[in-house]
Design a protein around this nucleic acid. Sequence first.
RNA 1: GCCGACGUAGCUCAGCGGUAGAGCAACUGAUUCGUAAUCAGUAGGCCCCCGGUUCAAAUCCGGGCGUCGGCACCA
Length: 651
Amino acid sequence: MVAITLPDGSVRQFDGAVSGAAIAAAIGPGLAKAALAMSVNGKLVDLSTTLATDATVRFVTRKDPEALELIRHDAAHVLAEAVQALFPGTQVTIGPAIEHGFYYDFARNEPFTPDDFAAIEAKMKAIVAANAAFVREEWDRDEAIAFFKGKGEHYKAEIIQDLPREETISLYRQGGWVDLCRGPHMRGTGDVGTAFKRLKVAGAYWRGDHRNAVLQRIYGTAWRDEKELKAYLTMLEEAEKRDHRRLGREMGLFHLQEEAVGSVFWHPKGWRLWRTAENYVRRRLDAEGYVEVKTPQLLDRSFWEASGHWDKYAGAMFTATPRAEDAEEHKHGRILAIKPMNCPCHVQIFKQGIKSYRDLPLRLAEFGACHRYEPSGALHGIMRVRAFTQDDAHIFCTEDQITEETKSFIALLMSMYRDFGFTEVVIKFSDRPDVRAGEDAVWDKAEGALKAAVEAAGHPYTLNPGEGAFYGPKLEFVLRDAIGRDWQCGTLQVDFVLPERLDAEYVAADGSRRRPVMLHRAILGSFERFLGILIEQYAGRFPLWLAPLQVVVATITSEADAYARKVAAELAAAGLQVETDLRNEKINYKVREHSLAKVPLIAVVGRKEAEQDTVALRRLGGETQEVLALADAVARLRAEAMPPDLRPAGR
RNA sequence: GCCGACGUAGCUCAGCGGUAGAGCAACUGAUUCGUAAUCAGUAGGCCCCCGGUUCAAAUCCGGGCGUCGGCACCA
C-alpha cells in the first residue's frame, strides 16, 4: 500500500506504485485535467513520476506560482526544437527559465536574421499545437556522452562531463526531439499554451565567460495566459515611454554627443534638477555630521600605485600628460591619472596633522567627479557613463564604531530614498571575492563587523557571495521603481586595507597609534545614474520640489500680459521656478504644449483673473482647474514646492 | 571588449543605383481666442566619417566612429 497525503491533510491509499497522473485522476477529473506537475515531499517532479512509497503530494496547476517557471522552461525546449528543425547543424547548449521568460543559447555559425524569427515563432506554435508528451529517460552517463557526441552536440557532451558523477543523467523527449535536461516538465508541449512571444536575439558567451565562444541567445517571454502576456508587453512599452534618454531629449534636460562619449551635456533644466538633488543631499549630510571636501582631479601615477588601484584598474583609468614639451612632467615622463574614485584623496586629508580618537568618526563627504574608461558596450544613456559624480563619503572610525555608523547610515539612506519617492529597498550583503587585497583574518573581521551592523540596524538582507569589493565586504542597496524594476544605488563598504596601504593612523586613548577603519559609502551612487532613475521612476512627471520648471503662467488674451508678469514675479519671489507664456496662441494650444512638456502646474490668467487678482491653477494630468486668490496660490505653492527635508511638518 | 541590428531635416520615419521625401516641430503672416493641436505660407539636408566599385552611390563593397539590444565588465 502507498499512502498519499494531500495538502488538505487527507490521505489516499493506493494498492501499489502509482503515478502522479493516476493520483490526480483518482481525486477528480477536474484536477486530472488541470495538473501540470506535482510537488512530492516539497520537490517538484513530473506528473508521470511513479511513487512507490508514502509521500505528501501537492499538484501544480496553471494557477500556482511554480507553473510560470514550468511554462517558461518548457517553452525554451520548444524553441530549441523549432530552431533545430529549421536550422540543421545548430547545436543546443542551455535554455533556462528566467524572470519574465526564457532563453536558449545556440551554437551556429550563421547569425539568425529577422526573417528567421517569424519562421521560428511559427514553428514553435506548431510544436505546441502538436502537444507531444514530455517523456523522461534516465541514461548511463557514458552512453549519454557518446549519444550527444554522435549527434554532434559537443556542448551537451561537455555539460554531462562536468556534472558530478553521482548526478542522474536525464533526457527528455518531446515527439522526435530530445534534450539533456534535469526537468521537471509539464505533460506535453501543449501545456506551454499560446501566451508566449519570441523577443530578441543577442550574443552570449558559453558559460558566461568572455574567453569562451560566443553563442546566439534567443530570448522569449511566456506567461500563463494572453492577459498576462499582454500586461507584460504593456509594461515593456511603458518602460520605453519612460526611457530617460527619450525624456531627457523631449524635456530638454541633457544631451550626449559623439565627441564626448560617456559624458553628459546638462542643459539648464537638467542642471536645475541636478542642483535640486545636490542641494538636498548636501543639507542631509550637513545635518548628519559630515564635512564636505573637494579633492584633485589629476594625481600622479605613483599615488595610484600606492593605493593599489593602478595594479587592478590601470586599464580603466584615463591618464593625462601636458602637451608642452618644456613641462616638467613631460621631461620626466611622469604620468598623471584622472581620478577614478575619491577614497585615496580623502585618506590624504585624513593624514594631514595628527588625528586623535576624539576626532573619530570623521565623515569626509565629496561630490566627487570621477572618470573611468568603461567598456564601450557598457555605456547606456546617462545611467552608465565615463564621467560621473558620486555622492561619496568616507567615514574614518574605530572598529567599535562600525555598528553605530552603519546603523545611522542605513537610517539616513532609507529616509533619503523615501524623500525621492522610493519605498521598497532591498539590502544585499556581498562578501569576499576571489581576487582581493588583505589577509583572510582581516576579511573575517570586516565581514563580521558589517554583518553585526546590518543585523543591528534591523533590516532583512540577502547574501551575495563573492561580490564584495577587492578591499572589503559591502552592503548594496537596491531600490524598486514604480514599474517594478530594480536599481542598485547605495553602497556601504568596510575597508581595513586602504588605511593600511596609505598609512592612515590616529592616536588612541592609551596613546598608541592605531589604524582607523574606512567606511566607503554612497546613497545615490552617481548623480548621472540616479537622475536617470528618477526620470524613469516619475516618467518625467516630477513631484513639485524636483521639477526643474514648476509653473507656467499662460495668458488667454494679451490683455492679461501685465498681470501674468506680476503673477510670475510673485511666484518667483516665493522661490518657484516659473515661466510665462504670453504667445498669441489659444489656451488649448498652450495647455497641450506645457502638459506634454510635463510642467506640473499651469496658472491660466485671462481678463477675469486679472480683474479679480486670481489665478486658475491646472495640475498636470488633471481635468479641472482651481481658481485661487493670487496670494493664496503663492502661499500654497511655496509650501508644496518645499523639499521634503525643509517641510515644517517634518517627515 | 564580444555578437547582432541600426545611423537620412530638431524629432519620428519613408526612399535602397538615375535631380533627397512625409508628418510633427521651427520661422513668417493673419487670428485676441477660457483649459490637451486656429488657419495660411516659408525655410530647412557633408543622407555619420574615410576610401573603393560605377557613366552615376543616401542606396553596392571595405574600413572607422557612434547608437541600440544582449553578453562580459561595473573599484
